[in-house]
């Protein structure tokens, strides 16, 4: 692939990058301290683990949306494939769990190869094509019962192991593992966005045709984003599978895994890195702790309302609001227009 030379090297830009790095670091430290801040009860830790799983999934959705310019309504496909692949590799082939989890991501990436033809579709057609894939995968997981256990589900597969005397399967251990993965992919995302590839992808978002003319293979770059997004979603699916210890098609491929990352990422601001991560934590805790106690059945109505309000009033999400608050008066139109944030 050939990429145009990087255009951003002004001192203003580099100082902004440093500021962003500090913000990112601070955000991740907050995540690490979150269990202590919330009292570290097993119940709260359990919620936070699920919230972080969702953070990873939202990050993967936002990466595809922000860098790849594609809206997916079917991330449940990658999440489900990752969880089943990892659980089956560990259970049937005896692959160590810590190896099976990235392999789950690899299998999810392989499954996304089937979606490559969808890349030439634009907007709603791509979104709905991915939705169709997610449905097909769920039905396949139900029908291929010799492999997946069918609708009855899969339960006898190993959980997270003990490493260097630390039991990763207990809640504190699981939290650390999931957090480490979130941090890892957040860093990958940031590096990618700063790289030539990130510049090229931003150019594609502005004008795909113009970018093609200067020699950027837009389709290839977009397929890499699809692969990476699928890999991340698959890894978090696999983590989730080994932490909860039970899988069934209607759970692993549930539409929830497609809907929640959208809500979380849009709420937090899908054009930033920290936005989807914190958006997921806030949205998940709001849904589980507040919404569910207010409205036991149908609590998603509150999420729908939050999503609608955010799209209408703050399309850049919480991250956009925070940035506007801090940069008030310093930058005006230009900072509003820039895609990337902390």
């Amino acid at each position: 692939m050939s990429v145009t030379s990087p255009a951003t090297s002004a001192p203003v830009a580099s100082s902004r990058f440093q500021g962003r790095g500090a913000l990112l670091g601070a955000g991740l430290v907050i995540l690490a301290l979150l269990p202590l801040l919330t009292g570290a009860s097993p119940y709260m830790l359990g919620l936070l683990i699920s919230a972080l799983i969702l953070s990873g999934l939202a990050l993967s959705w936002a990466l595809l949306g922000n860098l790849g310019g594609m809206v997916s309504f079917g991330h449940a496909a990658f999440f489900g494939v990752g969880s089943y692949a990892s659980a089956l590799l560990a259970a049937k082939l005896g692959v160590p769990v810590l190896l099976a989890i990235p392999l789950g991501g690899v299998v999810a990436t392989l499954s996304s190869i089937a979606m490559l033809p969808a890349l030439r579709l634009s907007g709603p057609y791509f979104a709905l094509a991915i939705l169709a894939y997610a449905q097909i995968f769920r039905i396949l997981a139900t029908e291929l019962d010799w492999l997946t256990g069918g609708a009855a589900g899969l339960q006898r597969y190993p959980g997270l192991p003990t490493l260097f005397g630390i039991d990763l399967a207990d809640r504190a251990g699981s939290y650390v593992v999931v957090l480490a993965c979130v941090v890892l992919f957040a860093v990958v995302y940031v590096l990618l966005r700063k790289s030539h590839v990130g510049t090229a992808l931003r150019a594609i978002a502005e004008s795909e045709d113009a970018t093609r003319v200067v020699g950027v293979n837009a389709t290839l770059l977009k397929s890499w984003m699809l692969f990476l997004s699928a890999f991340i979603a698959g890894v978090f699916g696999a983590l989730n599978a080994h932490i909860i210890g039970f899988l069934e098609p209607d759970y692993a491929f549930s539409g929830v895994w497609s809907v929640m990352p959208i809500i979380a990422a849009v709420f937090g601001g899908y054009r930033s890195v920290l936005g989807p991560i914190f958006g997921a934590v806030v949205i998940y805790l709001f849904d589980q702790v507040i919404a569910k106690s207010l409205i036991p059945v149908g609590h998603q109505i509150l999420l729908g309302i939050v999503l609608a309000i955010m799209v209408l009033l703050a399309p850049n999400g919480l991250a956009g609001l925070v940035r506007r608050f801090f940069t008030k008066g310093q930058f005006n139109k230009t900072s509003e227009k820039s895609h990337a944030g902390a």
Binding site: A127, I262, V266, Q300, I301, G304, A308, V311, L312, P315
Partner: peptide, 12 residues
Amino acid sequence: NSLILTFAIGII
């Protein structure tokens, strides 16, 4: 954004 908005209204 209109895709996401109408999707949200569908959820509501």
